[in-house]
Every structure is written in C-alpha cells, then in structure tokens.
Nucleic acid binder design. Structure first.
Lengths: 220, 220
DNA sequence: GAAAATGGTTAAGAAATTGTTAAGATTTTG
DNA sequence: CAAAATCTTAACAATTTCTTAACCATTTTC
C-alpha cells in the first residue's frame, strides 16, 4: 500500500491524477502549494512525490532540493530541455511533460517504487531483542513497547537500517535537524543517551556502540 | 570512472552517443547487436546500459528482461505509449525517444548512476592479511578486528589506497591535522609506531615500511 | 669512525570526545 | 492559553586519544 504525495495547484489536473492513482491502488495525499507540501513532508513519510513546478508559496524547484530520500517525479508543462536537466540534476528521479499519458505515468511511478523497494529490503527493522514498528515512534525491546520521540526514532531507525555500518555523527545530525548547520553534537549525545536509557529499561544488552571520533553503530 | 555499455546498431547514432559520453568522462563500451551485447554482459560488469530497441540478433525487448542489477535506459525511435510502458514495466529504468537532447540524456544518465551509487557498497581495501572495512572504520588483520583511532585509520587508509606509492610525511601530516604547519613529525612517528604495534599483535609480517627522509609506504 | 640527522618506542601529561544529568527553552497538544 | 512533551544547552566526570619529551637505535654525512 504505497503512499504518494501529489503536489499540484491546478485543481482539475490534481483531481485527474488523484483519481488515476486511487484506481490503481495507491494511497494518495494532496498538497496544493509548495508550503503546504513542506508541512506534510515533516509530518509523514511518503513513498513517492509527484511534483508540479509552478506552485504558489514555494516553487517546485525550491521544494525539490529540500526533499531527501523520497523519489520525486516532476510533472510539468515546462518542456524546455534546460528545465528538465535542471530538475534532474537537482534530485528529481524523472521528469514528465504535460499533457501526459496515463499509462506512461503509472509505468514511471512503478519504476520508481520498484527501485526503492529493492533498496529498502523490507528488512531488519528487527534485530535480536529490538524491533522497530513502522509507526514512527514505537520500539519493541524484548517485546515490550518503548515510546520514542521523533528524534530517537529517526536515530535508531538509521542505525538499524544499516546495522553493519558506522553512522557518522554528521549523518545523524542531518537526520535530526531539518536546517542543517547550527545543530549541536552535544544534543545528539543526549538523544543517544536517552535512547540507551530507554533500551536499558528492558535489557542488559548494550545495542548502541560509540565509534570514537566517528559516530555510532549497532553492536554486532 | 563509470562504465557505460551502448547497444545500438545504427552506426552514426552510436558514434554520436559514444563521443558525447566520452567527452563527459565516461568509459564507453560498444555493442552493435543484441547477441553481441549478451556476450559482453557475461564478460564485464557495467554501471549503466543504453539500449536501442530495434536490434539485429536479439531485440532490445528480449535483451531487457535478461539484464539484471544494471540500470537500463532505453533509447528508441518508437514513441508510442505502449512501447514505453512495456519497456518500463519489463525492467527499464528510463525511456528516451529519439531524437534526444544531449543534455537531457546526460542528466538522465546521472540520475541512474546517482541512484545506484547510493546503495553501492563501498569497496573494501584488501592487501594480503590486511583488510580495511570502509563503511565500518575497522581494520581486519588476519580477519581479526583491530580497533583503530581516527588518526590511525586515516593513516592506514591513505597507505593502502596507494600501496605502491610512498606517502610523504607531509601528506600524512595533512591528513592528521587540519592546520598544517604546527603539527609535529614526532607525533606522526608515534601514530605509526602504535599502528605497527597493533598490527603486530596478529601477524609477524611488517606491513609499514619507512622510506628514509621521505615518508612511509606499504611493504611490497 | 664520529657527529649529525632521522626513525622507533615508551610513558606521562594535555587535549579532545563521550556519557549523564538537570535545568531552561521550545514545540506540541488539549 | 496552559500543560505536557520534547529538544537544547550547560556543566561535570569519565574515558580515550593525541602530543610532548626523553631516550636509544639506525642511517647519513663528513
């Protein structure tokens, strides 16, 4: 059940796309301005974004660079090669010009989702005594529910998703703060500390290992 | 240095693409028929395939389903929606119609390579009994894990990355200290000494060789 | 071969990084 | 708007790493 966010201000086009996607089994979310999209993006994780370029509030181009880790298909009336190239190099995964063919749009959506599910092997949100539920704030430790804050959830998810790797402090800081620069390592340390304490409530095992000067990883 | 395989029987188009890619720093390989492509695919791993549909020997469509784990961009004169959809659902990652815009082709190639390099496991540096796990900041000596400090890791990585070359003391000092000048060679000597001691814990072999007055290298 | 320069090892003190706690600031929620 | 939850900041202790300095070995230079 894939979640797709449609960002398009023209209501008639918006409705056509929404109808098409719903008919094909997708769960659809709607934004009618760039700023609205930004708010929605902070709230929920989507599997794909369909993005118009000419938007009120915040343009599609501006929005594009703010989106991370979600595939974006740009759907635009701008047919110039420069526009396409610009978007593709700014992070868009595909660029379709309006008017578009329904079947082609669906096929290109499939491609993006197919790519994605390859990467995110619906894998190990489970590791030994830990299991991360897909609800953005619950961790099971020895099958006991532990409530995590949004930040703690983001951290442990990143660690579990790459549990053989060391995740650098900077990478984790990126996850935490939407605006990059001014966030403090100190803050990250506190989050990690709190996470450890919550896990420690239910198990003796230490799961989060510090790699001195680099970052953190799941102990193996 | 990304390797791209062009599969296209029309020689003039083939040459245009080849030239374009070479100008942009790609390493290009050529196949002029479906069957030739198949042979090449068994021999070598490519990062991307550009695929024409109308090919002698084996059609592009037939080839497409045989390709696994390499992104494919279809480049075809067939503009019908059915052809596009068919290819995209059969495994193509993108579909561009001829005549194509050079910049757009390059951009779409970038997209595919960008996607791929995300989940590309960084290759580990291996040399005899030493193995540097890149995503892990660990050194294996005879398959035993050795804990290195940030500085030691930086040094051994530099040495292993260029194991035929001598790495000057200044180069290594640059790695260690952000401000160049005031760092001490003495300090570097200590780090090297500690590194050697840690490696010596697991093997008799001396791996780090001193080049008098110049620097260090991996013993060959 | 002796003096000078460079390299290797060790140990101790300096510096940097981390873990924890608690209080204040900020955001979210009712 | 107030209460609750969350995040950040600051302080401190504990730990790890880095640098310094001393001493000796080795190599080069004269």
């Amino acid at each position: 059940m894939k979640k797709i966010l449609i960002i398009e201000d023209d209501e008639s086009i918006h409705n056509i796309i929404e109808e098409l996607l719903k008919e094909n089994g997708y769960v659809v979310f709607n934004a009618y301005s760039g700023t609205e999209a930004l708010l929605l993006l902070e709230k929920e994780k989507y599997d794909l974004i369909l993005l118009d370029l000419m938007l009120p509030g915040l343009t599609g181009e501006e929005l594009l660079v703010k989106v991370k880790d979600i595939p974006v298909i740009v759907l635009s009336a701008k047919i110039s090669s420069d526009d396409k190239v610009n978007c593709l190099l700014s992070g868009a995964n595909d660029y379709i010009t309006k008017p578009f063919d329904s079947k082609e749009l669906l096929a290109r959506i499939e491609v993006q989702l197919r790519n994605r599910s390859k990467n995110n092997i619906i894998e190990n949100l489970k590791y030994r005594e830990l299991e991360l539920l897909n609800d953005n704030h619950t961790l099971l430790v020895c099958n006991k529910k532990v409530n995590l804050t949004k930040t703690e959830y983001a951290i442990i998810k990143q660690l579990l998703l790459n549990r053989t790797q060391v995740i650098t402090k900077n990478k984790l800081l990126d996850l935490i703060s939407i605006d990059t620069e001014d966030c403090d390592e100190n803050s990250l340390r506190v989050h990690i500390s709190n996470l450890r304490k919550k896990i420690r409530n239910y198990t003796e095992t230490e799961y989060i290992e510090s790699i001195w000067g680099i970052g953190f990883k799941i102990k193996s």
